[in-house]
Every structure is written in structure tokens, then in C-alpha cells.
Design a protein around this nucleic acid. Structure first.
Lengths: 84, 84
DNA sequence: GATGATTTGTGCGTATGTATC
DNA sequence: CGATACATACGCACAAATCAT
């Protein structure tokens, strides 16, 4: 499920890296590959998976959280939201 | 206390943005609205509050810290100085 | 309860590219 | 051209919340 996804990120195109990460994760949620309540990899793991910096992952997660797609819990992790 | 302050920043005038942020925060400290030891919003929050970039906030905070108005603590935040 | 590991939160410093004045 | 400002992105360090031992 969370193998190497560096190939999905275009570092040279016009789209920002964090937006590409958002789109990729949101596609998994929409496809049902990520069930509600399930935990995402840690920020550091996501950074490795996508081949970007942790700060870039945090921007992506912040965007997902702002739109209610995920819920972030300090000290625990990031989870797919229940109510969509 | 930390609502939208974009209206206090003049993006077209002669004064630099970071100097305006410095003046605005320092005015609050002088007025006692910001008590000694209280924490300021994060750099990103201040950037949103004033409608400027993070780099601009960092310049403002660096200036305040250099003059002893605030104390920046690595990993914790920025606090209003005690000794004035 | 104490300790340590894990994970997110915050900040530091820097770099690149673009745009405007 | 230089200074200012914005947005993005990187890497690192330390703090705080949580959880397992």
C-alpha cells in the first residue's frame, strides 16, 4: 500500500510538490483504498515514500486536514476522517 | 487578540512590511495588550494574520528579538520579554 | 509512577525562482 | 541593477503529546 511513490511526483512541472501529494492521497481516499479511521504513515515515512521533505508533507497534510479529509493528532498520527 | 490584521499593513506605502509588523506588535507590548511572558502566534500564523510571507514575519521577529522586545525559544515559540 | 520511543508541533537557517519597485 | 516581498522547498534541532515498557 505504501511503497515507493517517488515516481508519482514531478519535481520539474508547474504543480507544487505538496499539491501533488495532496492529490495522490486524496485519490486513494476517494477510491476507498484508505478506509475511514485508518492511520497514514508518519510524516517522516511519507517524506521518504514521496521523496520530498517533511515540511512539504506537513503542508500537504495541513491542506488535507483543513478540508476535513484527515484528522491530525499530536503524538499519535494522522488518520483518515470518518465523516465525509 | 490575534484576529485578522491585514488591514493594518500598507503594501503600497514607503514603509517596509516587516517594519510595519514590528511597529504593530511593539505597540501592543507597549500598551500592555501583550503581557510579559505571553506567547506570540507561530510564524505561519502571524504570516496569515498580517497577510505577509513567513520570511517577512521572520525579519520582523528577528528585529524585535534583537532589541529585546521578545525572546525566541527554539522549538517552543516566541515570547514577550520580561525585562524591558 | 518513571522512562524511553514514537509522532506531531515549532522554530532555525538556507536556497531557489519569480515579481515588483 | 539592487532591495523588497512572495512562494516553495530542503535539512536539521528541539519541544510537547502520546503510548509502550
Amino acid at each position: 500500500m505504501w511503497e515507493d511513490r517517488r515516481g508519482r511526483i514531478d519535481h520539474d512541472g508547474p504543480a507544487t510538490l505538496w499539491a501533488q501529494v495532496v492529490a495522490d492521497i486524496e485519490a486513494d481516499i476517494a477510491a476507498g483504498a484508505l478506509s475511514a479511521g485508518s492511520r497514514l504513515p508518519t510524516e517522516l515515512e511519507l517524506a521518504e515514500i514521496y521523496g520530498v521533505a517533511r515540511g512539504t508533507v506537513r503542508r500537504a497534510v495541513a491542506d488535507l486536514a483543513e478540508r476535513g479529509a484527515v484528522v491530525v493528532v499530536h503524538g499519535r498520527g494522522t488518520f483518515v476522517a470518518n465523516n465525509r
